[in-house]
Design a binder for these strands. Sequence first.
DNA 1: TATTGTTATACTCTATAACTATA
DNA 2: TATAGTTATAGAGTATAACAATA
Lengths: 161, 161
Amino acid sequence: MASKRSSNTAVDLEFAEPQADNALDSALDGFIGYAMRHAQIKVFQHLVNKLGTYDLRPAQFTALAIIGDNPGLMQVDLARTLAIEPPQAVTLLNKLETRGLAVRVRCKPDKRSYGIFLTKAGEALLEQLKDVVLQSDLEATATLTEDERQQLLALLQKVYR
Amino acid sequence: MASKRSSNTAVDLEFAEPQADNALDSALDGFIGYAMRHAQIKVFQHLVNKLGTYDLRPAQFTALAIIGDNPGLMQVDLARTLAIEPPQAVTLLNKLETRGLAVRVRCKPDKRSYGIFLTKAGEALLEQLKDVVLQSDLEATATLTEDERQQLLALLQKVYR
DNA sequence: TATTGTTATACTCTATAACTATA
DNA sequence: TATAGTTATAGAGTATAACAATA
């Protein structure tokens, strides 16, 4: 995180630079898209840092959670749920498989497709990560009360569902 | 006819609403980061489509709004406000200048820096775009009442400020 | 002919190092 | 030496086309 204004020389003050450090974007105050993007970046970055401890990206945690909740699903369904393209699902799954967290099993009548499952290690890690991610959510929204947090969650879901 | 993105034109509509297959992610229902990311993607994508008509990206509109509200600011301040790195500000400004929407003027005692200003064309377009972007916000959050929209805006700002 | 998974590819976005010209 | 702006570059993330195996 960079400091806001490292330069506070006389020259800056003399030549009509805006005084308030963060006021340069006040023209965008009314836009919900602007507020949502900034809030999302903050929450997302917090999660990136938390999951970095486990050398995982947010999408990889999401994939683990979806696989754990839908054992045996196909890659095409995983991709659709993650809102990514099939080639991205390949890369993502390769990583999870290499790390021994998930496996592809030819277990379907349709022999083109795999069933995707978590390994024991994957299941164990997922349980651990659920707490980590929930904690990250709470920390990143620490300026909200629990009521406000539930309100925000409900409003966000109403927007995208 | 599934949600394939066959068109990359500005007129790209988003009829491709999530199908009934969104039950696979119910394990992630409680996470605010998950809801925020999905809501943000929807609102952002809606704006991308709207601004595509003008061959502009959201960050370029944001830059126009910030320059319009802070005429004469330096690139380093623009970059800081946009939360981008200086090299990205160069590319962004080059585009705006090439299109005749903004100009760099050596008008400071410190001859290393430029003052950035909107042209007349830039000012005129910005006024037009403000309506477009506000309209995009309203459309992308059409499932909310006006009260809920204001609630959401306040909660989001409380998160990131 | 259509679909699953895959490879190859490309385009955007983002981040960093290093250069220039001023200070 | 330090800073404003720039160039070059590399890494993610994301998108499409095309292929092999199967349906």
